[in-house]
Amino acid sequence: MKSVKKLVSIVLIIGLVTMLGAGCSSGTTKKESSSTGGLQKVTLQLKWLPQSQFMGYYVAKEKGYYEAEGIDLEILPGGSDIIPEQQVSNGVADIGVTWLSSLMKYQSQGWDLIDTAQIFQKSGMLLVSKASTGIVTPADLRGKKVSSWFGGNEYEIYALLEANGLNKDKDLTMVQQDYTMNQLINNDVDAASAMTYNEYGLLLESGLKESDLNKIDMNDAGVAMMEDCLFVSKDWIADNEDLYVRFLRASIKGWADACADPTAAGKTVYNVDQSVSLDHQIYMANEVKKLVEPAGFDAAKIGYIDMNAVQQTADLSLKYGLLTQKADLSTATVNPKYWEEATK
C-alpha cells in the first residue's frame, strides 16, 4: 500500500510540473505583433541557410525598407530539421518561405496556410550529370542511378521521368542525396539534383567545367513546379493584414534592388553570415535574379502569382503522387490580394 501512496504522490508532482510548464507556455502563446520603439516585430522563416536565394529580404533589411514601413524584421535561418510550414503554423514565425509544391502538400492535409506571393517565377531545378555518362535527354536516364533530396523535392524528377515514359521504380534507381555533391563527383550516382543557383555553381567551383556537365532543365522539359513563395497562416493574417501588405511592399522593393545589382546583393548576404564564400553568394545572386525576373518579366511585378503556373504545379503534383486529391485553388489557399495591395 505504501508504494501506491508513493506512486500517487509522484504522479501528482509530475502532473503539477507539467501544468506549470503548460501554464508558462500558454502565457507566452499570445504572440501578437508587439511594438518595439514604434516598430512592429515580424519574423520571417527561411527555407534554408542564409544565402542569396533570399537576397531580397536581406537587401530590404539592410537598406531600411522594413523600418520605413514600421517593421522590425527578424529573419530566422532554416536548417536541416526546420520546416517552414510547421514553423509558421506553430507561431514561431509569422511568415515563411517555401516551395509552392511543398506548401500545397501541407494545405491538402488541412494546414491553414495561405500562399500570398510567388517570388521565383521559374523552377531552378536541374538534373546534372557528367558528360561522360552520356545523359543528354531524359530518356537517357533509363537504367541509371539518379539522386534527389526527397522529402518533397523528388516530384519534379518523377514528373520528368514519367513524362518521358520511364517508370521511377522499374526503369532506374533513385537514391537519396546528402547536402554535398560528392556522390556525383565521386561517380556514386550518374545524375544528381542541383539548383541552378546553388549546387550547379558548387560543381563549377569544385573544378568541373561547364563542358564536363550535362544538364536537364525542368522548365525546358515542361515539368516545372513552382518553388520559393511567401506564405502566412490564416490566423495570423486575419489580424495583421495591413502589416503584411507593408512587409510585402518593402520585400518587393528589396528584391527589385537585389535584381538590379546582384553583385551588391551577394555582398550584403555574405556579410550577414559569411556563408560559403563571397564569390558563391554573388554567383547565386545572379542565378536567382534569372528566376525572380526572367527575361521579359516586368520588374514591377516581382512576386506576381501566375495562376497558370500554380495550376501546372497542382496538376503535376496530383498526377505524380505528391497530392492524393485535387488541390483546392481558392482564395483560401492562394490569395494574391495582399500582393495586389502592396504593388498598387
Binding site: 541557410l49 555533391m181 560528392n182 558563391h280
Partner: peptide, 12 residues
Amino acid sequence: GVKILYALYSNS
C-alpha cells in the same frame, strides 16, 4: 553546427 552545415554543402 552551422559551420559544419555550410562547409558540408559548399564542398569546403
